[in-house]
């Protein structure tokens, strides 16, 4: 996480995204700041590595922004399309588990019966990896 953050901080000031950021971004244009871009990259674990990707992102935002034109005042949000159904309740019985061996097959690295993860938080893989 730290490595990633530092990397972003180092990259951002003189980095290649500078051209894409605009201080004034009228609603609907989808224009995003470098700061927002870093924020999205961190949360989506996606690297918007080139101009084309950023343009696509901006288009997607502009597309979704049209939803703001819908007047939702005094309209109760639909929580779920299943909201008129009862939520099924399960009785408190143990019916699963005991499949560590099967599950651990999905792990690239295993120590004893543990999954092995990199130290700290999950870092975004660099482009060249």
């Amino acid at each position: 996480m730290w490595g990633r953050t530092v990397w972003l901080c180092l990259r951002a000031p003189g980095g290649r995204y500078r051209g894409f950021s605009s201080k004034a971004h009228p609603p609907g244009s989808g224009r995003i700041t470098a700061e927002m871009l870093q924020h999205l990259e961190r949360h989506a674990l996606v690297d918007f590595g080139n101009r084309e990707a950023v343009t696509r992102l901006e288009k997607a935002i502009a597309f979704a922004d049209r939803l703001r034109a819908v007047d939702t005042d005094r309209v109760e949000p639909l929580e779920s399309v299943l909201e008129d159904r009862c939520l099924y309740l399960r009785s408190d019985r143990v019916i699963e588990g005991n499949c560590a061996e099967e599950l651990l097959q999905n792990s690239r690295r295993v120590v004893e019966e543990y999954f092995v993860a990199p130290p700290g938080n999950i870092a975004l893989p660099k482009l060249d990896e």
């Binding site: 588990g97 005991n98 499949c99 019966e113």
Partner: peptide
């Protein structure tokens, strides 16, 4: 309990 012995597919 032994590590990862109380894990269902949903939990993973």
């Amino acid at each position: 309990a032994p590590p990862n012995s109380l894990v269902s597919f949903f939990d993973a």
